[in-house]
């Protein structure tokens, strides 16, 4: 089967973000960008499915500016077969992203789309569920184990109180959680090979998707700062403070 994996270019998870002084957003100029960590897990899962003979082809899709091509190259170096860049300078909302993915799925006919459960920039946690809804497919979110067996997938999900197992009919959308796998590092030979793999280019307009946002961002502000940093000498002093100053125990 064919597996489609969207990969998002986001500010690297190690970077301490800065809110722009005019409150219009977060500074993204001259900031290190990387693939959303959950998307690395999705690519890894798809590549492992290919290595196990379950999947024939893995397609990495990124929706973003020209530079998102670098994110696709990373996916190709990890083992994806080809890429599709949906080029736009707009910051698409999850609903518009899901519409792009639906249009691509209609064209490519994958049997599975593996989406990161959330992107670490807008923390929306919506794209996978929305894509499944628009396609009329089943969804298996927050997956920690995925087993494919004749026409369906058995998925273990991370839920609030523990784990849950469901069976979804294929085609389906799976969203990857932290423990699904540990993504590999791309080897140098594979990075070189990835440069030769094809990347097609399209745009939201080509896919018939309206980019107009539904949410107007009025301001982006820094959260109130926490006044921390005080130290205690020893355990006795700590217990003392907790009992008599903070009065929390």
């Amino acid at each position: 089967m064919k597996v489609l994996v969207p990969v998002k270019r986001v500010i690297d998870y190690n970077v301490k973000i800065r809110v722009k002084p005019d409150g219009s957003g977060v500074e993204t100029q001259n900031v290190k960008m990387s693939m959303n960590p959950f998307d690395e897990i999705s690519i890894e899962e798809a590549v492992r499915m290919k290595e196990a003979g379950v999947a024939e082809e893995v397609i990495a899709v990124s929706i973003g500016p020209q530079q998102a091509q670098e994110t696709i190259r990373t996916a190709l170096a990890m083992g994806a077969d080809r890429g599709i860049l949906v080029k736009t300078d707009a910051n698409l909302e999850p609903l518009a992203v899901a519409k792009c993915l639906k249009a691509l799925a209609d064209k490519e006919q994958p049997e599975m789309i593996i989406v990161g459960k959330q992107a670490i920039d807008d923390d929306s946690n919506q794209t996978g569920q929305m894509t499944a809804a628009l396609l009329g497919w089943a969804q298996a979110t927050f997956a920690s184990v995925v087993k494919i067996e004749d026409g369906s997938a058995q998925v273990t999900r991370e839920v609030d109180g523990g784990l849950e197992t469901i069976t979804v009919k294929l085609p389906a959308v799976v969203t990857s959680d932290l423990r699904l796998n540990e993504p590999r590092y791309a080897s140098l030979p594979n990075i070189m090979k990835a440069k030769k793999k094809p990347i097609d280019e399209t745009s939201p307009a080509d896919l018939g998707v309206d980019e107009t946002p539904r949410l107007a961002v009025l301001t982006v502000a820094e959260p109130p700062k926490r006044e921390g940093g005080a130290k205690v000498e020893d355990v006795a002093q700590l217990v003392d403070k907790l009992m008599n100053e903070a009065k929390v125990i």
Partner: peptide, 15 residues
């Protein structure tokens, strides 16, 4: 909250 709560976005919905 966005960016792990390091920024707070005020958004207005037109839906």
């Amino acid at each position: 909250p966005i960016y792990a709560g390091n920024a707070l976005a005020t958004v207005k919905s037109s839906d």
